[in-house]
Design a protein around this nucleic acid. Structure first.
Length: 245
RNA sequence: UCCUUAUCGCUAG
């Protein structure tokens, strides 16, 4: 099955889904039954292509083929449902895990928290974060970033700053993803100057801002008709050894 | 051999 799984996964990534499915059928016929990994790969593919019904169908299949669902299986489905804007169903799957005796892990929580944030249900996302802490799981960068992204998109800089505060006090270092999110939030809120200052302070810390941290600022400067400043910033970025993207 | 987070752009609406 190992060989088949590698092939199927590779084919899916290359977009050759048809061939992957043929191999899947072949496995069953050739006495090499698909295992948990095979199913997870295919479920993920169906989710990515928006065929949730088929993904759920495979989930049923697993059971009848004596294949145990793992936490990854559930995580994949939860993510797929969230990305298709079917968060309610994702929540159902989340609840089902308990009944099936599969324990949720950090990824499970992060996935659903992100889904809730993207559906603008930030209060519930925050509740869920508290719940995970009660269950002994530690929120990580990804957890905080989902919330941070929500507040930044909303232009709620105050809340965003609070999140950064919380994450650092909980031992999560702000990284370039964090800064990139914050900077774009600041630009969106029209606080371009503050965003520039943040760029500076990142450099003071000895970090090199990524192009993704520069981009929103450059963009915002153009919108404010400050093309010269934008170009200056661009030059600076190149000098510091970053390749523009 | 399998799952989750940020910016911009592109495409569609």
């Amino acid at each position: 099955a190992y060989t088949f799984n590698s092939l199927i996964s590779g084919l899916c990534k290359a977009g050759d889904f048809e061939i992957a499915m043929e191999l899947f059928e072949e496995m069953k016929k050739k006495g090499c039954p698909p295992d948990e990994f095979t199913y997870n790969i295919l479920i993920d593919q169906f989710c990515i292509s928006g065929k949730l019904g088929r993904a759920l169908g495979l989930l049923k299949d697993m059971e009848s083929n004596g294949c145990a669902r793992s936490v990854v299986t559930y995580n994949t489905l939860i993510d797929g449902l969230c990305k298709s804007m079917r968060v309610e169903e994702a929540e159902e799957i989340f609840d089902q895990m308990e009944l099936h005796g599969v324990s949720r892990n950090l990824v499970t929580y992060n996935t659903l928290i992100d889904g809730l944030c993207k559906s603008k249900r930030v209060d519930e996302a925050t509740e869920l974060m508290n719940k995970m802490i009660l269950e002994g799981l530690k929120p990580d960068k990804l957890t905080y970033n989902s919330l941070l992204t929500y507040y930044c998109k909303e232009g709620n800089i105050k809340k965003a700053a609070e999140i950064v505060q919380t994450m650092t006090t909980n031992g999560c270092e702000a990284d370039m993803v964090t800064y990139g999110t914050l900077i774009s939030g600041l630009c969106k809120a029209g606080r371009t100057q503050v965003a520039c200052k943040l760029l500076r302070s990142i450099q003071m810390k000895g970090m090199v801002p990524s192009p993704k941290a520069y981009n929103p600022v450059i963009q915002a400067l153009f919108k404010q008709r400050k093309a010269k400043e934008a170009v200056r910033l661009f030059r600076e970025m190149v000098e510091k050894g970053e390749s523009p993207d």
